[in-house]
Design a protein around this nucleic acid. Structure first.
Length: 205
DNA sequence: CATGGGATTGACT
DNA sequence: GTCAATCCCATGC
């Protein structure tokens, strides 16, 4: 079961929220999405802010397409393109809770702890063997599959915060996470180390 | 054609 | 806490 193209043809922040709790699978490996960030051409942290280039062609393309790019020369980061064709917007998948083929993930990641398999945008692509060759692939018919929330994730509680690792548009609270998720990429911005959840706010919808 | 900058991670102090 | 690895892309000559 795969989410239809219409799911992605909506405001990117709504899609980022709704993707929490959904499943991401490639081959035998799979996990539940527990952390996302939204990016939109209207704000400068988005690659599409500067307009159409060869790099952003996919990002500005049809919703329900994979946008995979290399970060810091090392890591592949996976995004789901959103909003109508011609609008540059995508959801960055930042963390998963691993659910299938954990042995394969362990081998690819080279670490023992399940909590380290997919707790970051570069880690999950390595664990699921998602690479630049998947850029521009169709998420509704290709090898990478995003499915609806399993039953126990139907009413997942969300927290929101500001995005991570960027230098522009720092004020936007476009990062979403499943409350209590263990496999998150980084501590919540501004929270005290000894007080988990300190500045995280419950998402209103 | 040369250069600078990352939507990161892992190792080290 | 700091810092290097490493490469694609956008920009500017």
């Amino acid at each position: 079961m795969v989410l239809p193209r219409e799911f992605y043809d909506r405001p990117v922040v709504a899609v980022a929220r709704d993707l929490i709790g959904c499943t991401l699978a490639h081959g035998a490996t799979a996990g539940v999405i527990v952390e996302t960030e939204a990016y939109h051409e209207s704000e400068p942290a988005c690659h599409a802010f500067a307009g159409v280039t060869q790099r952003t062609r996919v990002l500005l393309g049809a919703p329900g397409t994979a946008y995979v790019y290399r970060s810091y020369g090392i890591h592949a980061l996976f995004n789901a393109v959103c909003e109508p064709d011609g609008v540059g917007a995508a959801v960055l998948i930042r963390a998963l809770e691993p659910t299938a083929a954990l042995t394969a993930m362990r081998g690819r990641r080279g670490v023992d702890a399940v909590g380290q398999f997919c707790s970051g945008p570069g880690k999950l692509t390595q664990a699921l063997a998602i690479g630049l060759e998947h850029n521009a692939g169709d998420l509704t018919s290709g090898p990478i599959r995003i499915g609806p929330r399993p039953a126990r994730w139907k009413d997942v509680e969300l927290v929101s915060g500001t995005r991570i690792g960027i230098t522009k548009a720092l004020e936007l609270e476009w990062r979403f996470c499943a409350a209590g998720a263990r496999s998150v990429s980084r501590p919540w911005p501004g929270r005290a180390p000894s007080r988990p959840g300190g500045q995280a706010r419950a998402a209103t919808g």
